[in-house]
Nucleic acid binder design. Structure first.
Lengths: 109, 109
DNA sequence: TTTGTATATCGCAATATTACGATTAATATT
DNA sequence: AATATTAATCGTAATATTGCGATATACAAA
């Protein structure tokens, strides 16, 4: 085992989980926060900024990029990363619709 | 390795990641959605509802409970689970403040 | 063309997660 | 008391994640 049984769930549930999982590591949270903070492309500062080794950061960036949450464009020898605003928005909407299920507030328990 | 270096990150970043990670599995998403849907306590239907084995569901419930997102009260032989509304709200606020970093929209890349 | 700089990939070790059968614990019912 | 019901825990196998050293790649500068 150790393998998620995605076929038991809806596409929406799997999508929500995929996005949430991507944000489920503090390094990736820190990367996103830094990209928002400088509000521009980042060409390489991330390794110093975060404090993990370069291959580790590269791997986290790849994961965020695969999900479409960030994008990177090659700029000479370095790569400029920034938030993919449209996809970030879509992710936000999906998660918010999940968060805001609480219509009625029946008391229970 | 295989161990997250939490000491490299702020408490806030670690908190955000912990919540996101908890929502990073479709079974836990499905559990939460079902709790919202019936908007009341659930006493045991979850195993049939989700379609995973009982120990697996129990484990996912434990994880959500440890983080405070749900609560369970014993009701005879069964246990009634429901969303912990206050903690759910707090989680929502924390994640939304992370999502809504996008003040200025400088073009880049 | 050689050297330097920046990033990605490979390979691996350590740890974590997922899933479930078997069992236990705790309360209800008969 | 004996039995049934419900949920938690234990133990374990399979897979995933995290992190990084070593290396490769790709372009720039000298």
């Amino acid at each position: 085992m150790g393998l998620i049984k995605t076929e038991k769930f809806t596409d929406s549930q799997n999508q929500i989980a995929l996005f949430a999982k991507a944000l489920g590591h503090p390094a990736r949270v820190a990367i996103i926060q830094h990209l928002f903070k400088i509000n521009a492309c980042v060409c390489g500062d991330l390794v110093e900024e975060i404090g993990l080794a370069q291959p580790t950061i590269s791997q986290h960036l790849k994961e965020l990029k695969n999900l479409g949450l960030i994008q990177g464009t090659i700029e000479g020898t370095s790569v400029c990363y920034c938030i993919h605003k449209d996809n970030w928005s879509a992710m936000k909407d999906l998660l918010n619709s999940f968060f805001d299920n609480d219509l009625n507030s029946n008391s229970c328990c």
